[in-house]
Write a protein that binds this DNA or RNA. Structure first.
Lengths: 187, 187
DNA sequence: ATTATTTAACCGAACGTTCGGTAAAATAAT
DNA sequence: ATTATTTTACCGAACGTTCGGTTAAATAAT
């Protein structure tokens, strides 16, 4: 088997960056080709399903990253607050200190309810459920736990929008610090 | 002069909806044409500057709407908290109860720092400044006021992302109710 | 020699844009 | 009041470019 020009991990990293930056429609094959160093046809060799498969794989990988690195600490040992702080630390890496857009935001535009949007919805739904579980463990009633989990993720998303538009990453940092209070409902 | 097929206001309403829904690159002339009922060439009669002009005009109009309807109550009479509650009421209309995406989010993707992105940045900057001013009037120190204003807008944006992805508008409603506390710093 | 990978060349379709022309309202001249 | 002219609004067709996607030859490791 001949050597690959770009290994899978590096390829997916660059692909992810393009989708994050431009959204689905803005991520043209030209931009992808330039970012990955592979010609169109090579990309179709790696992803026979074309652009849609690229987006799906990228989404699944980001979801796995989220599960393994960000959400894992939530199921670990320690007090709920400590676990959430661990998650915040991982989130800081995940979003590059606020400089990386969120795929769930970038890929959620457009009306046509395609498979990608359902992936996006599923990913965020799982995230909400995971945070809500921690809140419930800390004694928060189920309904309230769900709301607080949603609010927490909403705040993260919002601070990323602020970061993208204003190029000001302070709100993102502050949001991460406040996560325990938001999720556990200590106002 | 022949009668217009679509009057300016209606035309801009539909244009706005397309940009909100699909973002700049996703808002193709075909989609715009379909949504407005005007053929490509007719659109270029109304907007000689093409798609970019359309986006600019839409942004400016949304900015004016925001100034006139949403931010105006902030400079009106009444206690700061009441004024903010009035703003929240107008925001609810502005974003259609959370069903409308925010143009500032939709149009902020892509790296190339073009004129549109600078419009977007300016619009959000003005919004932040306006909220910060109210906070300062209520006795909040300047730096803290700016942070709280940013956080408030961030929360709005985030709840809109939640709404778009999960089709759950509860977080948006909750966010609007909490705006006075966030802006005035009552945790 | 076989097989996996990349590339150059190419496809039809859609992109944003422009052009020539038609229909109708507004204006000017009679 | 009627006619001729100009202006405004719109559209069909085409522009060159780029889109996402395909084919077949070249390349390189096994």
């Amino acid at each position: 088997m001949p050597i690959t020009k770009v290994n899978d991990d590096e390829l997916l990293d660059r692909l992810t960056a393009v989708f994050r930056m431009y959204g689905y429609e803005g991520a043209s094959l030209s931009r992808i080709s330039e970012a990955t160093g592979l010609q169109r046809a090579s990309l179709y060799h790696r992803f026979p399903g074309g652009k849609e498969e690229m987006a799906k794989v990228v989404l699944e990988r980001a979801g796995k990253w989220l599960s393994d690195r960000v959400l894992a600490p939530l199921s670990g040992p320690g007090k709920p607050e400590e676990r959430i702080r661990k998650m915040a630390k991982e989130l800081h890496i995940f979003y590059g200190g606020g400089k990386n857009c969120c795929l769930l935001d970038s890929l959620s535009f457009g009306v046509e309810d395609n498979e990608i949007k359902s992936h996006v919805r599923g990913g965020m739904g799982a995230w909400v459920e995971c945070l809500a579980k921690v809140a419930r463990e800390a004694g928060v009633p189920a309904k309230k736990a769900r709301q607080q989990a949603q609010d927490a993720i909403g705040r993260i998303q919002g601070s990323l929008v602020i970061a993208r538009v204003l190029k000001d990453y302070g709100a993102f940092e502050r949001t991460l610090l406040e996560l325990p209070d938001v999720i556990l409902g200590r106002k």
